[in-house]
Design a protein around this nucleic acid. Structure first.
Length: 230
DNA sequence: AACCCAATCAACCGCATGGTA
DNA sequence: ATACCATGCGGTTGATTGGGT
């Protein structure tokens, strides 16, 4: 089955892809002799195996006399920017104000340069976001650190208070009856050990004074451990 | 020298619109 | 009124090219 395109011709048999110099010559000759328009007949009569759309596009964008070649000038770029701001993607309208330039050319130019700028701006945006995130992270870490230090200080104060309150009592309990006090209760670190160290001297002194007032093993355990209770 | 990637350009495709039979 | 054809337009794609690694 041969499908018909919007130009009323069968699509499947037409040549596609880049135009050869021979095809260009045939098309240019035909259009020069017969004028623009009636592209269906151009396609049929010029001896080209191309559809009407393809012929028109090739003529309009490449073969038509008066087309400018080369880069878009800064002046032209200015006009494009201005007119695009005015009309948006109306490429053929914009092209009317740039003699020798085709809508396709302007469209490609805009897409290339606009895309480049958009990419650059996206890159800049991403960089800004990263910097902001980095800053937030630093702030968060800093805040966490401040909170942690405050908490540590608070905990240390609490422990100090607690120890100051409890140690004398605990030590008394320990000295008077070490078996009833769980050994874990004494795993409190340096302050407790320091306190206990001071007290132990008194205890040893007491022990020598009142020989059987407390169990000697606990004190020995402390003394043998180099000041720490395990 | 070989490969990769981005930029560029030419051409295609689908849709909209206008003319006319 | 409407169906069909011709044309134009904008978006997209694919090939080529040039620069960087």
């Amino acid at each position: 089955m041969v499908e018909m395109d919007s130009w009323g011709v069968s699509e499947t048999e037409w040549r596609k892809g880049p135009w050869t110099p021979e095809e260009d010559k045939l098309l240019a000759q035909y259009v020069t002799q017969n004028g623009e328009g009636r592209w269906s007949s151009v396609a049929r009569c010029a001896g080209l195996n191309r559809n009407a759309k393809s012929c028109r596009l090739r003529w309009v964008n490449y073969l038509r006399p008066g087309l400018k070649r080369g880069h878009i000038t800064p002046q032209e770029e200015g006009i494009i920017i201005e007119l695009h701001a005015l009309w948006g993607n109306k490429w053929s309208t914009i092209a009317r104000y740039l003699p020798g330039r085709t809508d396709n050319e302007i469209k490609n130019y805009w897409r290339t340069h606009f895309k480049k700028r958009r990419k650059a701006s996206e890159k800049q945006d991403r960089r800004k976001i990263l910097l902001r995130e980095e800053k937030n992270q630093v702030e968060a870490i800093s805040n966490e650190r401040v909170l942690f230090e405050e908490k540590e200080k608070h905990d240390a104060d609490s422990i100090m208070e607690l120890e100051n309150e409890m140690l004398p009592t605990m030590y008394e309990d320990f000295v008077s009856c070490p078996d009833t006090v769980p050994i874990d209760s004494y795993l409190w670190g340096g302050l407790w050990n320091q306190q206990l160290n001071n007290c132990s001297k008194m205890a040893i002194q007491n022990q020598s004074n009142t020989a059987n007032s407390c169990e000697p093993d606990a004190i020995n355990m402390y003394s043998n451990s180099g000041g720490y209770i395990y």
